[in-house]
């Protein structure tokens, strides 16, 4: 009897990219903005980020333990969700609220729908909305990094900022959303690593820019760099699971997000609309996917015969 060989289905070689690798890349891309947020907002910001990340990982680990499922925290998606949520919160957020946010993100939005790959909405962003609705007062308590007094996000329009302040993040806002510059650097890194395609961020930001150019041209810098648009467009609207797979679908998704963001900011009673825009478009994603599927190679020729 000769040596027993393994018989596997082709292909017999694989690319080295892994789910964990992709999650690590996104975390790396977020780090400059996160670190900058910590420098800007001090210890409070660090505590918030630690709380959200630790709670998110713990929540996923406990869920898997309780339900006797295979442990999945190694794929780093929980770390990413926690980090994203934390970066979307104000440094003044009470830590217990931040922790609730992580639990909502991981347990309610992600695991209850089947875990990684099955959730229909972005966990971090949906959790932020839940917190925003549930704890409206504590959640909109932003602090200005310049004079350390309580201030609203620039989009609430009670202080004037220069373009430089807006672009480099010297203004109030959530921990990770202030520095458009560092977020764009992170986005470029992801595009360079081919983790994301530029379609959604460009369509999203472009649509917001064009709309505000038409509606109030003097505030275009504010609407593009002032709020959560960069963080949302580059890191939340490009989440694989909850956004369209097809290129055309991505374009529709990006433009849709931009329009909804603009409409909420312009006509709604809320200063910020990025999260709601992405959530609404998340819901439409399966339909966008289905309607934008391309035909296989050589298909048309068959139909013509």
């Amino acid at each position: 009897m000769s040596k027993l060989l393994k018989v596997t289905s082709s292909p017999h070689i694989r690319h080295e990219d892994s789910t964990r690798g992709i999650m690590s890349d996104v975390i790396i891309a977020l780090l400059p903005a996160a670190v900058y947020g910590c420098i800007l907002f001090g210890w409070n910001a660090i505590f918030v980020l630690i709380t959200t990340v630790a709670t998110a990982v713990a929540a996923e680990a406990l869920w898997n333990l309780a339900l006797h499922k295979k442990q999945t925290i190694g794929d780093l998606s929980a770390v990413l969700t926690g980090l994203l949520l934390g970066m979307n919160l104000s440094s003044q957020t009470p830590l217990w609220i931040a922790a609730i946010g992580s639990v909502v993100a991981i347990i309610v939005v992600k695991q209850m729908f089947g875990g990684l790959g099955y959730n229909f909405a972005n966990p971090a962003m949906t959790a932020r909305i839940v917190l925003l609705v549930s704890f409206a007062g504590q959640m909109s308590n932003y602090v200005s990094p310049i004079d350390a007094v309580t201030s609203a996000t620039p989009l609430a329009k009670d202080t004037a900022y220069t373009l430089k302040q807006l672009f480099f993040g010297m203004h109030g806002g959530a921990i990770g959303e202030t520095s458009s510059f560092l977020l764009i650097i992170g986005g470029l890194y992801l595009m360079l690593r081919k983790v994301i395609k530029p379609i959604i961020p460009v369509a999203f930001i472009g649509t917001v820019a064009v709309c505000s150019l038409i509606a109030n041209p003097q505030e275009i810098a504010l609407s593009v760099f002032g709020g959560g648009l960069m963080l949302g467009a580059i890191f939340m609207a490009t989440d694989y699971v909850t956004t369209p797979t097809t290129d055309l679908g991505k374009l529709i998704f990006g433009i849709g997000c931009g329009l909804i963001t603009f409409v909420i900011r312009q006509f709604g009673s809320l200063p910020e609309g990025v999260s709601y825009a992405i959530l609404l478009m998340n819901i439409l994603t399966p339909h966008i996917n289905r309607l934008t599927l391309s035909k296989p190679f050589g298909y048309k020729e068959v139909a013509q015969e």
Binding site: S18, I22, G117, Y118
Partner: peptide
Amino acid sequence: PQTQTACIRCGRCA
């Protein structure tokens, strides 16, 4: 052996 995870819908296969 490489770790298999759930599909993350990255769309690379398509």
